[in-house]
Design a protein around this nucleic acid. Structure first.
Lengths: 229, 229
DNA sequence: ACCTGAACACCGTTCAAGT
DNA sequence: ACCTGAACACCGTTCAAGT
């Protein structure tokens, strides 16, 4: 006899379970076995719904990106093509807001190699905004590369240890002394005076880099930049 | 009786072995057990020289970065502080050349969280070039964040599948049709006409983004930019 | 000081079988 | 169609022991 009615698994419910697990316990806790246990099922049951673990991770990223690539509001926020900078900015900040809900997604996106539908949809929307803004196809291409991972709403982590900056190897060798890195210390000291909390304001750095890039691209576009050779 | 004289392991030789293994078979082939086998030793012998696998990976990244953070020529190439843009450019292209020899290093760097001595040395040298060039500590800080992973000589991968662009989920759902992504197709078609090989010229994209960023920073510095509020 | 052997608690994935 | 059980070939790491 069937003991308890359990809604049958689907690809989406398996992926949603994996996202919930990653949100709760981090991406390292997402193993096929742990996910199966959480869904009240034997590990092998998952393989009817996802091809393998890579496919599961692709699905997780796709489902998260869907939240902003589906894009309910982008059509309202970019009525005029000449506002492409504002439109791009809005879209990338929306991506950033979504990603903030799923801290594991940043690293997961970096390691994905497959281009899933939601990923393509977001990239296409962004590319479309640049083209509509009057950038040439060539300049648009370079613009996408220059934006890089910032199209997903995150910047690379630079000083990424929470808290203290200089950390060292576990064994051997001289411990890194602050005095050995005077230039870094000067910058860090300045930043700490400006922001007593201590570490970097990642949101500010994201916007700074984004606006710097968009400004520079707008200038190239206005100058009628075209590829050398 | 000792059968064959084997030079005793050291931390550096263990790490060098891991780098050789990663170069030959990829980073996924680097397991403690496979590395031990390659070094003709039992897995547990490694733990006398590295703390754990994380420490091994930190060591690998550190040893690779050492190749350009040790920096024999940088002192010659940046004699005049006002040439900071050229000096930064040279240093990052050197980093890129080193990284090209170790394709696995890109992903390894992205996942590292520890700041090892060679990492700090490179960051400090770069920070120093910007400060010497007359950028304020604050602007230098934002510059480092803006450069992001490009300080290690790589850009984020955007269309990173070798060959064809649109790839899909393994199962279910509509296969992504090129027609669904008209903006991407326009850009890709344009790029392919320009470069019949097909895919992106990663070297060109790296330099494009780097110069765009350096130009924009130089302009801010010349305008005496300072942080709002 | 440096290396070994056996064991523990995990992985992802296959295959053949159940309902 | 969907799920199960047992097994395979791996992991990283601990502990107590060897030389």
């Amino acid at each position: 006899m069937t003991c308890r009615a359990r809604p049958p698994l689907t690809r989406d419910s398996v992926i949603a379970g994996a996202i919930a697990l990653a949100d709760a316990e981090g991406i390292d806790a997402v193993s096929m076995r742990a996910l199966a246990a959480r869904l009240g099922v034997v590990p092998m049951a998952l393989y009817k719904h996802v091809g393998d673990k890579e496919d599961l991770l692709d699905g997780m990223v796709d489902q998260v990106i869907d939240a902003f690539s589906a894009d309910p509001e982008a059509s309202e926020t970019a009525p005029r093509p000449e506002d492409w900078r504002a439109a791009v900015r809005t879209r990338l900040l929306a991506a950033r807001a979504t990603l903030a809900l799923h801290p594991w997604a940043r690293r997961a996106i970096e390691t994905r190699v497959r281009r899933t539908p939601a990923v393509l949809r977001h990239m296409d929307a962004l590319t479309g905004l640049l083209l509509a803004g009057g950038l040439s196809a060539d300049l648009t291409h370079h613009a996408m590369h220059t934006l890089g991972n910032r199209i997903w709403g995150f910047s690379p982590e630079l000083f990424n240890d929470p808290g203290a900056l200089p950390t060292s190897t576990r064994s051997s060798a001289p411990e890194p002394e602050p005095a050995d890195y005077p230039a870094i210390m000067r910058v860090v000291t300045d930043a700490q005076q400006r922001r007593p909390g201590g570490s970097c304001d990642e949101d500010y750095e994201f916007v700074f880099a984004l606006d710097l890039t968009l400004d520079a691209l707008a200038r190239l576009a206005a100058d009628g930049w075209s590829s050398p050779a």
